[in-house]
Design a protein around this nucleic acid. Sequence first.
DNA 1: CTGAAAGCGCTAACAA
DNA 2: TTGTTAGCGCTTTCAG
Lengths: 332, 332
Amino acid sequence: MGGMQRRVTIKDIAREAGVSRQTVTRAMNGMPRISEATRDRILEISERLGYRPSRFASNLARTSKTKTIAFVVDSFRNPYYSELAADLLDAASARGWQMTIVSREDEPELQLLSRLANQVDAVVGYLGETDEKALATAARGAPLVLLGRTATTDGLHSVDFDFGPAFANLIDELRKRGSKRFGMLESQPLGAVYEPSTRRIAYEAAVDPVSAAAVVVCEAPPQSVDAGELGFDELIDRFPETDTVIAFSDLMAMGALRAAHRRGVDVPGQVRLVGVDGLSLGAVTSPALTSLAILGTGFAEQIADVIEQALDGGDGAERRRASLPILWRESA
Amino acid sequence: MGGMQRRVTIKDIAREAGVSRQTVTRAMNGMPRISEATRDRILEISERLGYRPSRFASNLARTSKTKTIAFVVDSFRNPYYSELAADLLDAASARGWQMTIVSREDEPELQLLSRLANQVDAVVGYLGETDEKALATAARGAPLVLLGRTATTDGLHSVDFDFGPAFANLIDELRKRGSKRFGMLESQPLGAVYEPSTRRIAYEAAVDPVSAAAVVVCEAPPQSVDAGELGFDELIDRFPETDTVIAFSDLMAMGALRAAHRRGVDVPGQVRLVGVDGLSLGAVTSPALTSLAILGTGFAEQIADVIEQALDGGDGAERRRASLPILWRESA
DNA sequence: CTGAAAGCGCTAACAA
DNA sequence: TTGTTAGCGCTTTCAG
């Protein structure tokens, strides 16, 4: 045993069974126009010979090829990305696609993109590169769906968030429940030059001027819980009047919660706390986290729809904006 | 524009450029033995024509084909699986493999397995089916690596856990820190007939008889945090002497923590708490969770090694047992 | 019900 | 540096 044995192909089976290769194909794929007897015989032989079909050959010959999409995220250790991946996985498998998840380690984004372009039928994900032309070029004609931003370049698809109305609505609802002074925990991508996030902009537009000034920018490491913890301290110290804190993400809100525990600040008694994302994990903290939900709102389905259109080669680029309902839990 | 246009192939490019297909191949793949000039010209043409290489064709023709492995889990929403997937993803991409993650919805396990067998080069994951023969048959010759159990059937690989020594060591260390009466929160797969887990068996073997009797079996739903919360209540009510609780998983430990908060039980002051898994999430609870770590211990690397051997067609089935170091954090 | 022929799109080996 | 010739392993016509 062992050694470099040649691959068993349908040809071998055909020879062994004394039939044509075509007949073998029919047997293997449960196609019609073949007798029970020969099918069984062929199946038996193929098993005996240890036959394993080549997915490359069959896809090459087949008219309808199996689609593979790549989902690109920063780090798969961030539960937001993994929960979204789970949703997307469902949507993909419902459509008969394979999906590979790619977390972009140290590899330059554009390089990774052009590598992927040769391996999958479409790429979707959170890409940071701002030069859309460069992205489009790197994708080499592969459909590309940008998440969390709105594409402007021809041929690039995107699904963005509608933070404006979402924050307006959130602040409104919180006011109804008694909130007066808001504060925000904003995130700054580690090391990068700071630029206000769309969330911050939406926040500032939704609150009163005093609250709008109460923003703490946290430099967020991979695990941004810590950033949220530090940020909460700073926010409360600098703006003690704050009765409602809105965090950039649920992860940061979890950090804020930890800080609150430590300081003996009651949530939501003294300070109301709201995150963004709708992580299912937010349900297990005490108190459970109220959140502006992205997950579990059909966002993944929306993405899949866009991919589907892109795959079908629709010419116009598809651009959507997802809305974010409030997921009321205990913290606000 | 639009419509069902024929695929652009190297043949088209060759014609357009007035060279052979082989030359196009050389240009596209950055191969040697081609002049800068023609390469540039070909690249330019291919871009203009919107050429997209067929991964199926190239893999079929190529001698070294790209490997794809499938990682099968119950639910990708369980952070244990997603963190392990992240580790495995790293190990896979380091080896140049693609990895697709498959969460087995309602599809019968064996059926899913045989479907996968035609799409990937190897399957690894947590499979529940106990009939190993059936598993081997469904895999149709594709290398199969079982996780969390030890395979006994010829040709089936596995990576299991060495819970015996791990629990013995854990209990030992906890005793040194003053623990006297232990209790365990055991998990019962939802709806299934209960059978003691290897963790429970290892626990019982490691503790004194009184502690060995203090086991609460929690029926664990997908999100087993709730199960842990309920279980903690029951355990403390039935065995009030308990000073140290060991949970089946970190998720359940998180639930226990929540119950402790609610009851005003100080952790680790009054009760020490230990989970299993080594979730990075365990670092963000307050107090942070001590755990018998699986994640972050080279477990994924070990799995990848086994897959590698299986892929190389090593005849003997590879069977490993991973050890579990204690990850000391605040809760114990 | 079965078979023969003609590809799918690309790359390996060898010649030129 | 470039081209020619054979495939890779399977499926799709279209005839039998």
